[in-house]
Design a protein around this nucleic acid. Sequence first.
RNA 1: GCGGGCGUGGCGGAAUCGGUAGACGCGCCAGGUUUAGGACCUGGUGACCGCAAGGUCGUGGGGGUUCAAGUCCCUCCGCCCGCACCA
Length: 823
Amino acid sequence: MSEPRYDPKEIEPRWQRVWAQERTWEVTNEELKGETSYVLEMLPYPSGEPHIGHLKVYSVGDAVAHFHRRTGRRVLHPMGYDAFGLPAENNAIKTGQKPRDATNAAIASFQKQFREWGISIDWSREFATCDPAYYRWTQWIFLQLYENGLAYRKNAVVNWCPKDATVLANEQVVDGQCERCGTEVEARQLEQWFFRITDYADRLLDDLDTIEWPEHVKTMQRNWIGRSVGAEVSFRCDALDTEFPVFTTRPDTLFGATFFVVAPEHPDIERLAAGTGQEEEVRAYVNRALTESNEERGDAEKPKTGVFLGRHVTNPVNGEQLPIYVADYVLMEYGTGAIMAVPGHDGRDYAFAKAYDLPIRPVVEGRDPEGDADGLPYTGDGPLINSHADFDGTHNRDALEKITVWLDREGKGNASTNYRLRDWLLSRQRYWGCPIPIIHCPDCGTVSVPLDQLPVELPEIEDYAPKGKSPLAAAEDWVNTTCPRCDGAAKRETDTMDTFVDSSWYFLRYTDPDNDKAPWDPEVLNRWMPVDQYIGGVEHAILHLLYARFFTKALADLGHLNAQEPFARLFTQGMITRDGAKMSKSRGNVVSPQEIVERYGADTTRAYILFIGPPDKDADWSDKNIVGVADFLAKLWRLSALAAQGPGRGAELPNEPDGPGLELVRAANVAIEEVTRAMTGRFAFNAAIANVMKLVNACSKEYYEAGNRDPEALRYALGTASSLVFGFAPHVAADAYHLLTGERVWDEPWPAADPRFLERDSFELVVQVNGKLRDRIPAPTEATREALEEMARAAPNAQAQLEGREVVKVIVVPGKLVNIVVR
RNA sequence: GCGGGCGUGGCGGAAUCGGUAGACGCGCCAGGUUUAGGACCUGGUGACCGCAAGGUCGUGGGGGUUCAAGUCCCUCCGCCCGCACCA
């Protein structure tokens, strides 16, 4: 008989058809009894074809979704598209193809691939964020936030990308460059829309403790939010009759302040220097500082520079007159743009004082061994000195609180907390995004579009080229409208929203995607949310993940949902590299998932990407290693087909297995145990697959070498292997299981190991002498400690080591080993 | 500088608790089967010494705790990621 041949090209479409026709992976909100689970991968931005990173994230997510289903949970596993965005618009400018057409084409290609990969998606819930039926509710949420003071417009210095001709949020500027195109961003003073994410800074920080996320992602968010606790202290300039507040984390060092510094951008510089004779020098310095690039300016290593402003302020704690300097090491964006300088206890102030020969006064006792000869600057803790009789001798941590209280009582300051986090700038001067549902009326001002007029649809336009304002401004028919309040002539807001707004709530919409009365039914939503397992790339550690957390909290506060956090557990998958480098067209090292799937089939491709290593780590693609996985799946299928040709059917646990059958049953149960362990609370898919390989190897050996002595046990072992591997290679597993049993493996519960087949009546006892392995001998499982010790002492290779030595101690670990300690 | 992570054969990587290091796969070597094959099956494969039995060494370096350390503690080195003149 010729051997049956594994043919993924025939198997895979056949099972995909079954899943599509039977809508196998759909869940309805009507049948939400029992335990549920919401498994979600970050939604893709559809552009061209999916790449290998998509294949990885959905392979990981699908493995989790299947495991949750088969361990008794109803699983929500939806898919959608982050479909607004700059690439489609830039493409339109270049090729003339409308953004919607290009996006729809890309979506079609993604859908096709995801189906060909056999990902278990509930397609009934699919949407794209550029669908009016979706962005209607994006606008609705915007208005909720606007009406409640969480969205506002202000004139501010903002980041402007000259290439993309739009403003950017702080999170979208990396090293002073546009996150998307790498162009150096410019500072511009503009009127823009913001979300008040800073109101949530404390909760965004504190609630990180309530979610199971990778520590490095939490750390990045903590860094980004950047909370510092301290005090705001007022320094008065009598000459100008003005108070200058500063923020400090070290009010305990107030007595050590010997000068005062303002940022070059500080609005009062001109006024301060006026009439002091320093005007020229100050102006020259400020001009130079302002024209310097971000990189040059931000270099902490370069020598400190600054110029005396010719004025003084009064230190509120001791009345001392402190000279005011302007220096570029002080940043306008942080705190108040002015600092008190304590050179004795701050490295930067110290460097400045040394450069300009300013006095340095230590006020905390202690020396920094790395510091100068005098042990300064000293940033550690210690008792106060040189301060005031009331505080000298007090430990600085206690003094910090006391001085803050004193400042508050005297009206010279107060406890204060500062954040690095800025409000989220959401408006963009681009076309392909969600319109901001606002009307500007000359009489009524800024007016919300009434909810019953949503969505404000994005009009069709011909010219997408950015001109420094939104291309929508040219769509006059659309821009000109009437004010909903006074019916007078008014204009629509022409900026669109940052696409991160679209993706900050899509996971909520999946729970109730067809609702046209509301963004969701809160009762339904609350049954699914929060997402049990979220999976995506670490590149979104701050942007998307912070914004989504903010939206969830804000919407919860407004009573629209219960969850305080969107994603209870987060898994960040590592990158697939090629030759140790990130894949990119310019490097020419791109691995096309389509090509691999075409050659080996989706099952092999998916299983290989999981087998390559731990999924949270980066992994280098190798064309060679994939054949191991291909052979393994082929072997599983072939053996199943052969076993199915033999007598009998089914993959039931044999009644009283013995001999070779018992060995197979045992191997299957060990595999169940190991795979379950790899999947429970972990994502050790590589280890899980390795254990199934081991089981299939045992089956192979029994079939080919020994002659299939127990067909029933063989079918059980192969059925178990198919069942265990289904989440990684669903088509071949479904087919093999069907051949063996006529049943559908996804309807079967996750296999449970039978303890009877995990225990054995004898085991290999390890005999150590002084911790060194000396022998292995068979021993009965039931043997007492004494019996084990006796057997160990009698073991031939151990005996040779014991000769002429005194036994000091014997350690017996039943079922494992005996360690004889000798002298 | 601060914070997080990592370091195991020729290669990718296994090893929840401290208890046989190197599972599984690639590669390599050998054998079987086949008209042939880049198909299929089986075995071997950390280094060194040895004909063998066996021994010595071995999880980035050094030190420690322990009967026992890849695993725990200290220290040093190297690599990766994030933040960084944030007061």
